[in-house]
């Protein structure tokens, strides 16, 4: 898979070549901070953990990760650079993976910049830092899942706005797959096995397990496979409608 390295570096640099990266990071940190400290009642709870932070993160990611994902392919398609990129001696899968990894690195960087929250909680009490590390890992995995969904939908259109809206909707459904909002649509006509299968697709269920500090291999595998499946779908979509 040659070409992954250069494409990854080019992509990552392109985030910082425009104000996009800085706007994203500032908004992410502001929202994460205010959600955690005011809405989440960080101080009032009197508990030394990051539960308020990890509790709001999925909802923050629901809007911010699609904003990162929407440009992945739609922009290349609109500007025509997709033709240049995909006629270089690079496997389409390598290009898809490189762009995904660059996006994930960027989101990971923003996530890492929330470290003052972690310092605060350590200053105020003695939290279970293992659980916090697990929470961060789970957050990154969940962001990866959203980003992979966004990558696929971005590859299907040349409009970033359409890519963004579709990604938010699909991610919202995936996030809540285990909750009545989504399940009620299937209850009554789908077999119980199908209901269970849909419920088990829920991002939130798997993320909440990890963010409580329970690193279950099944939850990690779930995210890894979700990411792999959506990235594979991205390659298929690209192959199918490269020139459209």
């Amino acid at each position: 898979m040659n070409g992954i390295g250069p494409i990854y570096r080019r992509e990552l640099a392109s985030y910082f070549a425009t104000p996009l990266a800085y706007v994203f990071i500032v908004i992410f940190l502001l929202l994460a901070g205010s959600f955690t400290f005011s809405l989440g009642g960080f101080y009032e709870r009197g508990q030394a953990d990051l539960a308020p932070f990890f509790g709001f993160l999925p909802w923050l990611y629901l809007f911010l990760v699609p904003a990162v994902a929407m440009r992945l392919w739609a922009e290349e398609r609109r500007s025509g650079s997709i033709e240049l990129l995909l006629t270089l001696p690079v496997q389409p899968g390598a290009a898809v993976a490189a762009k995904f990894l660059a996006g994930l690195t960027f989101i990971g960087l923003a996530l890492a910049l929330t470290f003052p929250i972690w310092i605060t909680v350590n200053y105020l009490g003695s939290p279970d830092n293992g659980a916090i590390v697990a929470g961060y890992l789970g957050s990154l995995l969940m962001a990866g899942g959203f980003l992979a969904v966004g990558s696929c939908l971005s590859a299907a259109t040349r409009s970033q706005v359409i890519a963004f809206i579709l990604t938010v909707v699909v991610c919202f459904l995936l996030l809540l797959a285990g909750f009545p909002l989504v399940l009620d649509a299937f209850r009554g006509w789908a077999a119980p096995g199908v209901l269970d299968a849909i419920a088990s697709l829920s991002f939130l269920t798997h993320f909440q397990a990890i963010s409580k500090g329970v690193l279950d291999l099944r939850d990690i595998l779930y995210f890894a496979m979700t990411i792999a499946a959506w990235l594979y779908a991205t390659t298929l979509v690209l192959e199918m409608r490269k020139a459209d």
């Binding site: 080019r10 392109s14 425009t18 500007s79 025509g80 650079s81 240049l84």
Partner: peptide, 11 residues
Amino acid sequence: LPEGAPSWPEM
């Protein structure tokens, strides 16, 4: 050289 010589404008 693709039609319109596309590249990445920010580079």
